[in-house]
Simulated scan of single mutants.
Amino acid sequence: MAVREILVIGIGPGDPDQITVAAVAALNRVDVFFVVDKGAAKSGLLDVRDEILRRHVRDQDRFRVVEIADPPRERRPDGADAYTGVVADWHAARADRFADAIAGELAEDGVGAFLVWGDPALYDSTLRVIDRILAGGRVEFGYSVIAGVTSVHALTAAHRIPLNRIGEPIHVTPARRIADGLPDGLDSAVVMLDQGFTAAALDPDLEVFWGAYLSTPDEVLIAGRLGDVAAEITRRRAELREQHGWIMDTYLLRRPTP
């Protein structure tokens, strides 16, 4: 009995040259690429995905691209419980749309793929949505995950710094978790999913390494003592969002070395 196969492929933070050899091999097996359309404001993201397919898929006639409109979600819910509920509802809506696309567009013996920014295991919903689809039983398939380069790796490479200091842990967190400062006992944190620049209100003696549009031609980097560069990062971030219509950025915060 033929069974559909889904590949969840990490495509890195945006540079087609950062696609792994394993990811290239996976791309060349795919019959249908399912691409989540996040609207006109983020059309540049689709352009990067298209370039990756042009660059790395040998037979340009063997695959189709199916766009799936991303369901809307509340971006600023009040409280942790509300946030969890909003995300769960969004995942459920995504699961419905993904399941419809897989059932309607992928042959029973076909290979489909979702291209995921960075690595599928780091702050991405695709794997959770895949689990929901399978649990719902509407469509059956097997799936595999192909790891990708993360924006964390791209950030530290661009700034030419190690991720952690000698013998110290590293904390990776969404921005809302550091609104009151770095957690006790941790001296370094990578901050992701920031709607603004949350760190601007923190200890000015922290050291920051910030990057936007990492590994793309639009990459912008700023580093220094937080109190010296926070205003510049806030201003530059607003300018870039206005210019491009969207922004993807991340940053590393560190307490001063004793």
Rank of each mutant, 00 (worst) to 15 (best):
L155A: 10
N164C: 11
Y123K: 05
G14V: 07
D96M: 13
A212W: 06
Q60E: 01
T20C: 08
D180L: 03
V87D: 03
E51D: 15
Y123R: 05
G142H: 06
Q18R: 08
G136S: 09
W246C: 09
A135Y: 04
V191E: 00
L252T: 00
G112S: 11
R236L: 02
A200D: 06
W117T: 02
A69D: 13
D249P: 14
N28H: 07
A93L: 01
S125M: 03
I52W: 15
G167P: 02
R235T: 10
T173D: 10
E67I: 00
V86S: 05
T173F: 01
R254H: 03
L122I: 05
L134W: 00
L221N: 12
D194W: 02
D187H: 12
D50F: 06
R55K: 11
E140A: 15
Q243G: 07
T198I: 15
E168I: 04
R75H: 08
T234E: 13
R176F: 11
D131G: 01
D180Y: 09
D70A: 08
A230E: 07
V57L: 05
V48H: 13
F197E: 00
F34A: 07
T234I: 06
R54Q: 09
V111C: 08
L214N: 13
A25Q: 12
E51M: 14
A199C: 03
G14E: 00
F197V: 03
V36H: 08
F63T: 05
V32Y: 02
L155W: 10
P183T: 01
G39H: 11
R64Q: 11
P174C: 06
L226C: 06
V36Q: 12
G148T: 08
G245N: 07
D218F: 04
D17L: 08
A80W: 13
G79T: 04
E108G: 07
E108F: 04
V129T: 13
P217L: 14
T250C: 02
I9V: 10
A200I: 03
F34C: 04
A22G: 13
I11D: 08
D81E: 06
S125F: 12
D203S: 06
L182R: 03
R76T: 14
R138P: 07
A69E: 13
V86M: 04
S43T: 14
L221P: 15
